[in-house]
């Protein structure tokens, strides 16, 4: 059963990842990305990495891809021909991508299976949400505080850069 589920989700991930590259329609490509991320999240669940799986779903599938779709809809690229790139430019990345896939498969065949560590040699760490939360509020409290300042200046920056002329209160002079 476990092997079967792994195969299903691995296929979903790989096929959808290929779909992101192959799809001509950008909306379809974005949806493929979403499905591919779902597959990866499912694989993480199978590894008992629940936190990672939910972060992937919430942050990437939920926020980032939704933002992509939002921008695609906003730009409304329907009915427009994608600009033809120069021939040399498209060939080079294709060769590079193909070479990477071949190298990956070759390494798998040459080296065989990944070595599996004996049970107990790998410390069971950081899988639980509780431990993560605990660390965030103890050891990593300072970075969390820094992030709050990062978000504050990012918010201020958006307001400063997007406010219409003449609405500023602090102009001076």
């Amino acid at each position: 059963m476990g092997q079967f589920l792994f195969s299903v989700f691995a296929c979903l991930t790989v096929v959808c990842a290929a779909g992101v590259v192959v799809c001509k329609n950008v909306v379809n490509a974005a949806m493929c990305l979403l499905l591919s991320l779902l597959g990866v999240a499912a694989l993480f669940v199978r590894l008992d990495a629940f936190l990672l799986a939910f972060l992937l779903l919430l942050v990437y599938a939920g926020a980032v891809v939704a933002l992509f779709l939002f921008i695609i809809m906003l730009l409304d690229t329907r009915g427009q021909q994608a600009p033809q790139a120069r021939r040399g430019l498209t060939v080079a990345p294709r060769i590079a991508a193909a070479a990477l896939v071949v190298a990956g498969l070759a390494s798998l065949f040459v080296k065989g299976r990944l070595a599996t560590p004996a049970v107990g040699t790998v410390p069971a760490l950081g899988a639980s949400l509780k431990l993560h939360a605990y660390l965030l509020f103890t050891t990593y409290l300072l970075p969390v505080e820094i992030i709050s300042f990062l978000l504050l200046i990012a918010m201020l920056g958006v307001i400063v850069l997007s406010k219409r002329e003449g609405e500023h209160s602090g102009y001076g002079n």
Binding site: L142, I146, F149, L152, I153, L156, G157, I159, V160, K163, E165, H168, S169, G170, Y171, G172, N173
Partner: peptide, 25 residues
């Protein structure tokens, strides 16, 4: 420089301070 430009003030000084603190860390 800001005296010559119609740009908001407070935010500039605010961001400079936060950036300086982050650089010091």
């Amino acid at each position: 420089t800001l005296a010559k430009h119609p740009a908001p003030r407070i935010e500039f000084y605010h961001i400079v301070l936060v950036v300086t603190a982050a650089l010091m860390l």
